[in-house]
Design a protein around this nucleic acid. Sequence first.
DNA 1: AGCGTGACACGAC
DNA 2: GGTCGTGCCACGC
Length: 103
Amino acid sequence: MTNIASREAIWLALSQIPPGKVVTYGELARMANLPRAARLAGTVLKQLPENSQLPWHRVINAQGKLSLPASTPAGKEQARRLTAEGVIISAGKVSLAQFGWLR
DNA sequence: AGCGTGACACGAC
DNA sequence: GGTCGTGCCACGC
């Protein structure tokens, strides 16, 4: 599996996440057939272009929290988009109802 | 080739 | 509930 094919697999998996649901980095990697590439998922998301249509905001860490600092613009944007989709966030954590889609 | 780094995960304490 | 250590994949120097 080449490095770029892995990135593409992540992109594809990312595009499959429906609005109102969230997945963890590890789950995203599994969806992309890269069971142990949770870290890669993070680096790929980080390098996504601004203009991307992919739902990068639906990816959170295994503790149910947003990995982006709430102090940063991107962090606020992620929270804003999620709540706009009906995802309930309290104290930086996502409610279990929409967590763990595909499991 | 070696070593450090990161939007991570998981099992032990 | 926390913190720590290890394992992971890919990059960059």
